[in-house]
Design a protein around this nucleic acid. Structure first.
Lengths: 103, 103
DNA sequence: TAAAAATACTCCATAGGTATTTTAT
DNA sequence: ATAAAATACCTATGGAGTATTTTTA
């Protein structure tokens, strides 16, 4: 299981179709299909009912989705914090350099 | 950034040394060193101060660690839930099969 | 100088792409 | 019949290993 797979699954949930989800994710439909399959294999159960179209989440898929979304929210937070930190560092670096240039 | 890297970083935090962390993680010291470097590269700042031994987290590293641990807690929860689900499914499968065997 | 971490390289696993087949409306 | 998902195959990136070279207490 990895963060990408969780993001893929979230997008698939939102769009309700492999094709349209793959487009917004910037990958191909087969790539998305494979990643979801690998995730299901690892979990040991199906996230989606593929016998109906449009695709529907299984009950297990719904339970999985709730948790996945929580994780992705935190991951997004972490990335946001990291961006702020790296900007702070750039800022202090600049401040630190200017005085040494004065003389 | 991926879940493995977060787990690696958490273990490194706990152990305070690349070598001992790599041992409990079941990977080699260079592999751990590389993954932490890649993580730092992606983040754009250093998680560790390597000029002192034993290794010390930077202030930024401390901030990152707090968030990382939260994420890993949720990921562990998700894995736990998934294990329960797959066991439930095995259970209901067994129950579903037994009656068909009766005749 | 003796430990721990970084670097250099090699190899293999896997994520993703294209082409094609299968399936559900 | 047609649109969407699955499968097959190929390629390239990256994660991990071994061997070796810096480091810093």
């Amino acid at each position: 299981m990895n963060i990408n797979q969780l993001e893929y699954f979230r997008e698939l949930y939102i769009k309700g179709s492999f094709l349209s989800a793959s487009e917004t994710l910037g990958i191909t439909q087969p790539a998305l299909s494979l990643q979801i399959q690998k995730l299901e294999d690892e979990l040991g159960y199906k996230l989606l009912d593929r016998n109906r179209r449009p695709i529907r989440l299984t009950i297990e898929g719904e339970r999985f989705y709730e948790k996945a979304v929580e994780i992705l929210r935190l991951v997004d937070e972490l990335k946001e914090v990291s961006l702020q930190i790296s900007e702070e560092i750039r800022g202090t670096l600049k401040v630190g350099i200017i005085p040494t240039l004065a003389p």
